[in-house]
């Protein structure tokens, strides 16, 4: 994925889109005040300077799908593991809740279910049947909307053709009004996302940790 910070307006549509797509439960005010709200994607803000010379930069942060993911080796059960597609997958059923991965992830994008997620009836009708519900005591995080990736891959396979660039749209990218989020196949040098990742504006978060993230941030330009 590529995130163009020059396009991102900080509107947080991606945050809600991810809640809607991935059956992320809201935790309510008490739990939120304990910092236990679950936002697989968040919009970080960086204030610089003092009035009147203030500057504020937004940065949406989701799981960086590291190629060398620190969350993977520490997981004793392979609940956090790497897929052939290069995703960092999270198998909720396999997770026993050691929370080790959350300590290991330098981007703080893993969220623990401190209680059984619940929906006040009939809010459960909005749940996406393609995404499994988590139970208490497991870790959850951005999956790059793997259910959407799979469904497009299956469709393409049925039609005996390769997946087209831009055909897979994670929920956050789909919702983003200013098209700041671009998803695609980095292995295909012709894809939009590969083109953006080669941009001189590109960089990765905490690159020096050696996590080799799969998300490239295109820096916001100064006038």
């Amino acid at each position: 994925m590529a995130v163009d910070l020059d396009r991102c307006t900080g509107c947080a549509a991606c945050v809600t889109a991810c809640h809607a797509e991935n059956n992320i439960s809201t935790v309510g005010d008490d739990e939120a005040s304990r910092g236990r709200a679950k936002h697989w994607i968040r919009v970080e803000r960086y204030w610089e300077g003092e009035f009147p010379d203030v500057r504020l930069t937004f940065r949406p942060v989701m799981c960086q799908q590291c190629n060398n993911a620190p969350c993977e080796p520490v997981c004793p059960t392979y609940a956090s593991h790497h897929t052939a597609d290069g995703l960092n997958a999270q198998v909720y059923n396999r997770c026993i809740g050691t929370r080790y991965c959350a300590n290991a992830c330098p981007y703080n994008v893993r969220f623990f279910d401190f209680f059984n997620p619940s929906w006040d009836k009939p809010l459960q009708l909005q749940l996406n049947p393609d995404v499994s519900l988590r139970e208490v005591g497991v870790m959850e995080k951005c999956t790059f909307c793997v259910q959407r990736i799979k469904s497009v891959q299956i469709q393409a396979k049925a039609e005996q053709r390769p997946v087209r660039d831009g055909e897979i749209q994670p929920a956050c990218a789909q919702a983003c009004p200013s098209r700041a989020l671009v998803f695609g196949d980095l292995d295909d040098p012709e894809s939009e996302v590969a083109r953006l990742s080669r941009s001189p504006r590109g960089s990765m978060l905490l690159e020096d940790l050696g996590t080799r993230p799969n998300v490239t941030y295109l820096t916001r330009l100064e006038a």
């Binding site: 900080g10 509107c11 947080a12 945050v15 809600t16 809640h19 809607a20 809201t26 935790v27 309510g28 005010d29 939120a32 709200a37 936002h39 968040r42 919009v43 803000r45 504020l56 937004f58 809010l123």
Partner: peptide
């Protein structure tokens, strides 16, 4: 709407 209540405000969070 609970999703909006739990959406951090873009400027103050």
């Amino acid at each position: 709407l609970p999703w909006l209540q739990e959406m951090p405000d873009p400027l103050t969070s």
